[in-house]
Design a binder for these strands. Structure first.
Length: 566
RNA sequence: UGGGGCGUAGCCAAGCGGUAAGGCAGCGGACUUUGGAUCCGCCAUGCGUAGGUUCGAAUCCUACCGCCCCAGCCA
């Protein structure tokens, strides 16, 4: 099968250029990157961009990429998140081999390095409260003031820091700070906090520690310990780079990593803020982290998005330093592109309308051979039962059709895909005038879907034998957020939630082969879209999620009101 | 009125002094047993603005404008 994935050899961006130059000019012999999630939530499509970047670079340059959890804040972190993150990175298609690490693995080393800084007179224990520290920090335009505890003796600092570790002091009573420059225009240099006291149980170290290092004091050193060559992070850390370098330069670390920053992903109709995603889950706006409307990897997976589509998307959007908002349509395109090539075609009727073929013998049934994927002949064919009474899609019939409606109408002949041509002779209605049944005739000469005389109907419909159809529930998904830029112009982000992001249809039908469709495989319901079996399916009640619709030019014409124009 | 970044089409993004890639979206058309897919064509005399340097500027210089990030004991 042909693959249309973007050629990675041609892909380049400013980070890959830097790495290529570093290798070419001998600054490094090989490249080592890392993906460093904090286990305080589930991974989302924005993380996928970073994962594809870091693991992709390692693959392309023959290096390696570590998975390292940045687990320095036990208050927010949980084992559940660690497990889900590992599963999601694997699902996306990447492998860290033996290189699974945790910042918490380095707590002892980090502690020693903190002592090293104290001994060098470059760190001190501060007794100021969080509030007082904030007041001393100054503002963006005014320098800060030095803490009265800034000039304690090394001995006193050493003693206090050891007692902080021993758990002698309550949370918030003291911190260890780097002694740098309270007047620096870079606020990160105004004596940043290195350690805080937290009497919290850590998912990995349990109650071994009562003090925990801050991000700034842990990240760069963790990179150095692992011999990371290129530490790639998002733009908001640019201001931290001088501090990252300061710790590296003032500590006896085993290697000299460099930090590079790129713009994080933003998507229209989507929110990628961990804080908001957590609220969506906790406040019940969705059913969980893996709700098919969520931009989490687990949500996208449940929705039926293949990992390959997400990887292709990441390659498509590129990597740069300008803030940007990518239109979700680009993601949809990447996903459809993969699904079109790979998804097996099946028949399903979402809004059924009964068709009786008057000249087809009662009680007879035949097997119709149907192609599984016209894009992939190796996918083969399957048999679908055909009988006198069929379901077709309600939307495929109009009693009084506009000019551009090509489907079934009174007196009109259409093709039933892979089966026969049928002509509608009569419309049967109930007492309310509702169409309940179509009386049609078929042309036995057209078996397989083509006529000996070469006539060709303008439309081809999907269909299901009523006697064989399997009832199913189908869930339709739309943007979780109505507005392209949720929360923009000062609106509350939650006011932008789309009340119709999920709609459920209960009386749908699918072909017999789908009665036990395995979850995890996305199918195409011909002419309708891509769907996948949901985890909520049971033996007698299959449930399908609509992954995406097919491109639908008829729907577009209707929306534009052009269906009647010549 | 500090510091750090960024401005190329509706969106993403190449471009690295030699005359504006590519993709998404959109629009036209061909083909079609999915109104799908595929194929073909169109879509920036212009690169935030104004000056300057140069034979030549999106690329270099100057000034200005706009947007983003930083005042957690979050990451």
């Amino acid at each position: 099968m042909e693959t249309t994935s973007p050629p990675s050899s041609e892909r380049s961006d400013f980070i890959r250029e830097i790495i290529a130059a570093d290798l070419r000019e001998g600054r490094h012999e090989s490249v080592v990157t890392r993906f460093p999630p904090e286990p305080n939530g589930y991974l989302h499509i924005g993380h996928a961009k970073s994962i594809c970047l870091n693991f992709g670079i390692a693959e392309e340059f023959g290096g390696r990429c570590h998975l390292r959890f940045d687990d320095t804040n036990p208050i927010k972190e949980e084992q559940e998140y660690i497990d889900s993150i590992e599963a999601d990175v694997r699902w996306l298609g990447f492998d860290w081999g033996e290189h699974l690490y945790f910042a918490s693995d380095y707590f002892e080393q980090l502690y020693e390095w903190a002592v090293h800084l104290i001994e060098a007179g470059k760190a001190y224990v501060d007794d100021l409260s969080a509030d007082e520290i904030r007041q001393h920090r100054g503002t963006l335009t005014e320098p800060g003031r030095e803490s009265p505890w800034r000039d304690r003796t090394i001995e006193e600092n050493l003693d206090l820091f050891a007692r902080m570790r021993a758990g002698e002091f309550p949370d918030g009573s003291r911190v260890l700070r780097a002694k740098i420059d309270m007047a620096s225009p870079n606020i990160n240099f105004r004596d940043p906090v290195m350690y805080r006291i937290l009497h919290a149980t850590h998912p990995r170290t349990g109650d071994a520690w009562r003090i925990y290092p801050s991000y700034d004091f842990a990240h760069g050193q963790s990179d150095a310990i692992e011999h990371i060559t290129h530490s790639i992070c998002t733009l908001e850390f640019q201001d931290h780079r001088p501090l990252y370098d300061w710790f590296i330069e003032n500590l006896p670390v085993p290697s000299r990593p460099r930090q590079y920053e790129f713009a994080r992903l933003n998507l229209t109709h989507t929110v990628l803020s961990k804080r908001v995603l957590l609220r969506l889950v906790n406040e019940g706006h969705v059913r969980g982290w893996d709700d098919p409307r969520m931009p989490t990897l687990s949500g996208l997976r449940r929705r039926g998005f293949p990992a390959e589509g997400i990887r292709d998307f990441a390659a498509m959007i590129g990597v740069a330093k300008a803030d940007s908002v990518v239109e979700v349509e680009m993601l949809y395109h990447a996903v459809r592109d993969v699904l079109n090539r790979t998804a097996l075609r099946r028949f399903a009727v979402l809004k059924p309308l009964k068709v009786v073929i008057e000249n087809y013998p009662e009680g007879e049934a035949e097997e119709i051979e149907v192609i599984n994927n016209p894009e992939d002949s190796s996918a083969g064919t399957r048999q679908v039962p055909f009988t006198r009474e069929l379901w077709i899609e309600r939307d495929d019939f109009m009693e009084d059709p506009p000019k551009k409606f090509f489907r079934l109408a009174p007196g009109r002949e259409v093709r039933l895909r892979s089966a026969y041509f049928i002509t509608c002779n009569e419309v049967v209605k109930d007492a309310d005038g509702e169409i309940v049944e179509l009386r049609c005739t078929y042309d036995p000469e057209t078996r397989g879907g083509s006529a000996p005389d070469g006539r060709r109907p303008k439309a081809t419909l999907h269909w299901l034998s009523i006697a064989h159809a399997v009832p199913a529930e189908v869930r339709f998904y739309d943007h979780l957020f109505e507005n392209a830029h949720p929360g923009s112009d000062g609106r509350d982000i939650f006011d932008d939630l789309n009340p119709d992001s999920e709609t459920v249809l209960h009386h749908c039908f699918v072909e017999p082969a789908l009665s036990d469709a395995p979850p995890g495989e996305t199918l195409q319901f011909e002419r309708l879209g891509y769907f996948c079996s949901d985890a909520d399916s049971t033996a007698d009640a299959p449930v399908f999620n609509r992954t995406l619709t097919l491109r639908d030019t008829w729907a577009k014409l209707q929306a534009q009101g052009k269906q009647n124009s010549a």
